[in-house]
Amino acid sequence: MTKIADNVNPDVYDKGSEREVTTNERNEDIVDEFDQREVFDLIRNINDPEHPLTLEELRVVEEKNILVDNDKNVVNVYFTPTIPHCSMATLIGLSIRVQLLRALPSRFKVTVEVSEGTHVSEHAVNKQLADKERVAAALENNNLVQIINQCVVNS
């Protein structure tokens, strides 16, 4: 690729620690509900398309920007592009969406959106990500699938 990355020198943050296994989680009789942290763990290790860094290290996704409602079967993920004119925002959103489609049970209705006020074309990106048919069409494009697969390979 001859194109130079949009954000050549992004801020890099520490990785959080792995989730600790509690005794409740070892106990066969207790049901563990889905929570923010679990959904966050699903997407924190997605690679950024431009850098050899994860979305967590770039703080594109954060635990506090995830909403999980177990009873209503709703998962909302808000992500924050590193700069407001990032051309990769749609691709990042698509990667998060694909990863959640593959990794969450089908009962959940998943919404992936750009955090409010963090991107110049916020509404356009949100609209694209919410459009099922456009997502499905994108996933039939082999080049795109390849890039997305490379992004989600470590998560």
Binding site: R26, R102, V145, Q146
Partner: peptide, 24 residues
């Protein structure tokens, strides 16, 4: 019902999605 099992399931399933797919 158990989170640890779900974690293993996610790992297995996302890996199988990549079998023979572009980008594997």
């Amino acid at each position: 019902r158990k989170r640890l099992a779900r974690h293993a399931a996610v790992r297995a399933r996302t890996r199988w999605f990549l079998v023979g797919a572009p980008g594997e």
